[in-house]
Design a protein around this nucleic acid. Structure first.
Lengths: 241, 241
DNA sequence: CGTCATTTTGAGGTATTTCAACGAAGGTGG
DNA sequence: CCACCTTCGTTGAAATACCTCAAAATGACG
């Protein structure tokens, strides 16, 4: 399945989640306690894989759940026609390994160099049923994933390609530190992946990207970076639903 | 907010969930223990509302989470353009009330006569942090919602209206007992709701529905029922991605 | 039974998909 | 280290399908 893996006694890398229903309105992330991180680390295996490595196949027996600590993973499935459909991009602190009936509903593959923790569900379930706080944290995390899924659904609901792509770029930009003006946003995935995520064809993504660049909204630097040149107008396109 | 509400000491109506990661492959639902149902019922309020009643508004302070026991609810939001977008239809045993930053991300409205439990989050959070099994059940339930959200995303990813509508009808049909051949599937929501869910215009839904009927795949009986006439060909359209 | 929202139907414009071919980049092996 | 090859991305032109605008018909509801 994975290239290299070694049991690790070190504490699990910071794993952040948001409350299921946040009454206070605070945006601060919940952090696991040191003990909880150690618990997870004790049952987990740290794995590092190279780009394009398959982490698990669609419909394979779901024996583990995964937590990204470094890099980007895509969760996807092949449609009957053979066209791929990307269900989600997973970034550090994200969980993946959604299953139904004991089998993974999607396949997962590394996009970049990736480090993740592999947590056997059998042992994880024991932990969760034993530690209400831990279960609560996972609940918060899955709730966050649910919001992301709804956001994506909202995104691909709009009929116009420009709006979809603009929304995607803004979304990707949100997870980069906006230190300097005109942030350089990394796009580790391929155009095909973006197309498969947005529900567009590769050609549409390519054309729309060029159009946004011609209009001076963004500037692509290489294939894996975008510079947001005119955030205001870009935001206007995004809001124009 | 709601028409009538009364604190209830009766046990919470059956609330079913699936395991977060189901190793055994069993499809049987997890049921809450009698004690857990009583705990929930003790903090919950049973509410009955009439069709089209607003349950909460978008961006309203999120003080409760809800569990449907009877009827159908829609979770939706108004886009800046004024066009509504349906995020999900909620059926008995479904949870709703997704929040972020202490506010509901969507609005919720009853489609039919609806009975639901309203669970104050402050008290619910206390319960969840004390009862790992209960938290686990909620985790399983939210995971289920996440799968549904992904399914919808998959659904509206396809460009063809016929495929989307066919997928929707099959999906609705899955939740009805297939006792007799040619099941009569209820469609409690309006065509506009369906359009807002599928990411199509009302006109497209109407035209596509008529086209499916002309081709002898389904037969609409009134505005709120469909009979699946040719499940095989309908399934073929659904699979034809 | 009348009013009004919902749905159906029609015709035209437009955007995306398809189909096809070229060009660029990255990875592999000699 | 270079050359080849495979994958990915760009560009062009035509067809299809959906959307928009508009108006009539059906059904729901008081």
């Amino acid at each position: 399945m994975a290239d290299a893996s070694a049991r690790s006694g070190k504490s699990l890398a910071p794993f952040r989640a948001r409350p299921f229903l946040n009454l206070t309105g605070e945006e601060d992330a919940i952090r696991l306690t040191e003990r909880q991180r150690e618990e997870l680390a004790s049952i987990g295996v740290r794995v590092r894989v190279r780009p394009r490595t398959a982490i698990y196949q669609e419909q394979a027996p779901a024996d583990s759940v995964f937590a990204v600590t470094e890099g980007v993973v895509k969760s996807y499935r092949e449609l009957p026609s053979g066209k791929p459909l990307v269900a989600a991009f997973l970034f550090p602190r994200d969980l993946f390994g959604l299953a139904e009936g004991g089998r993974y509903v999607n396949a997962a593959r590394a996009i970049t160099d990736v480090t993740f923790y592999r947590l056997p569900v059998a042992e994880l379930a024991v932990l969760l049923k034993h530690d209400a706080d831990l279960a609560y944290s996972f609940l918060a995390k899955v709730t966050h994933e649910l919001r992301e899924a709804q956001r994506r659904a909202l995104l691909i609901n709009r009929p116009d390609a420009a709006g979809r792509l603009a929304m995607f770029l803004v979304w990707m930009g949100e997870r980069v530190e906006r230190t300097a003006g005109m942030p350089l946003v990394p796009l580790p995935m391929t155009r095909s992946d973006i197309a498969a995520f947005l529900g567009l064809t590769l050609e549409s993504v390519s054309r729309t990207a060029r159009a946004l660049e011609r209009d001076g909204l963004v500037k692509f630097e290489g294939r894996h970076f975008v510079r947001i040149v005119d955030p205001t107008r870009l935001a206007r396109i995004v809001a124009d639903v």
